[in-house]
């Protein structure tokens, strides 16, 4: 049962109640625009040996930060979604096409896509993230330049497409052809690295719901990505966040868009199976 560490944390930050068993100043239930209810707490997937329940990072934030995500207008990440809506119709590349040229149904064609990514892709012969699919469209269909993995245009577009799956539970496949990459991701998750000799699991599995200095450690779920972080006031990609974590533990990060990070993205996403896609979330 979690919550044992919260009394000492409660003096520093206002903490959630039901899930974490203490005072109730911040919200427990994430309802966006008064109408869309997110699943922020779910039974852990069968493959998770060390957790009983999984929690959205939203539950770990202060009430002020939580509030920012409860209304699409108050959510600063949505200005980037607006930018992506404009970008959708921008013709680029030698083929003279925009996103809209092929995807006549608009971003709504991609409802549900966020929930199953990253996934095994037979044609690519590996795990593909949403960024891969966007760049494939750009380079092969539009004959335009690929975007950098965490370019502002890219995070905005992944936010727009991800929004079509908002509320739907994450449901990435880990078996079949994906299993090799999933195992690699799991290995990376538990592998201690860097000068601080820490693994993902040390913070996000062993010590979530405790304070690391003034930060309330979450389970490191990816269901809210791309996430608007107060820290840098922009949308952050999953791989970008992985990179930041690795730098924090004084490790040499894998490259964004590397097979290692794709594998880790798959594994971490699978740890959040059952939680709602929240993108575009607001985090610290």
């Amino acid at each position: 049962m979690i919550g044992s560490n919260l009394l000492r944390a409660a003096s520093i930050a206002t903490i959630a109640s039901l899930a974490f068993g203490t005072t109730a100043a911040n919200a427990q239930s994430l309802v966006i625009n008064d109408e869309e209810t997110m699943i922020t707490q779910a039974p852990a997937a069968a493959h998770l040996e060390n957790l009983d329940e999984v929690f959205s990072g939203w539950l770990f934030r202060t009430s002020e930060t939580q509030t920012l995500q409860m209304d699409d207008f108050d959510n600063p990440g949505m200005i980037f979604v607006d930018q992506a809506i404009d970008q959708w119709d921008v013709v680029e590349g030698a083929a003279g096409k925009s996103c809209a040229s092929c995807h006549e149904g608009g971003p709504a064609e991609f409802a549900g896509l966020r929930t199953v990514l990253p996934r095994w892709d037979e044609e690519a012969g590996g795990i593909q993230s949403m960024e891969d699919y966007i760049n494939k469209c750009r380079t092969e269909r539009m004959e335009a330049d690929a975007w950098k993995w965490s370019a502002s245009t890219m995070t905005a577009m992944t936010a727009l497409i991800g929004l079509e799956s908002r509320g739907m539970p994450v449901d990435v496949a880990i078996d079949g052809p994906a299993s090799g990459a999933w195992e690699l991701g799991k290995e990376i998750y538990y592998q201690r690295v860097g000068q601080l000799d820490m693994a993902c699991a040390n913070c996000h599995e062993d010590n979530y719901d405790t304070m690391i200095r003034a930060d309330h450690l979450s389970q490191g779920q990816t269901n809210g990505f791309p996430a608007y972080r107060l820290k840098n006031a922009k949308l952050n990609s999953i791989h970008g966040r992985f990179k930041g974590c690795m730098k924090n533990i004084r490790a040499t990060p894998f490259a964004e868009g590397s097979d290692e990070f794709r594998a880790l993205e798959l594994y971490v996403a699978s740890r959040g199976n059952g939680l709602s896609v929240e993108g575009t979330s607001v985090r610290n």
Binding site: F73, M78, I79, D82, Q83, D86, S152
Partner: peptide, 9 residues
Amino acid sequence: SGVKPRVKV
């Protein structure tokens, strides 16, 4: 670059 206003009325 990239300035985008949003208003809600």
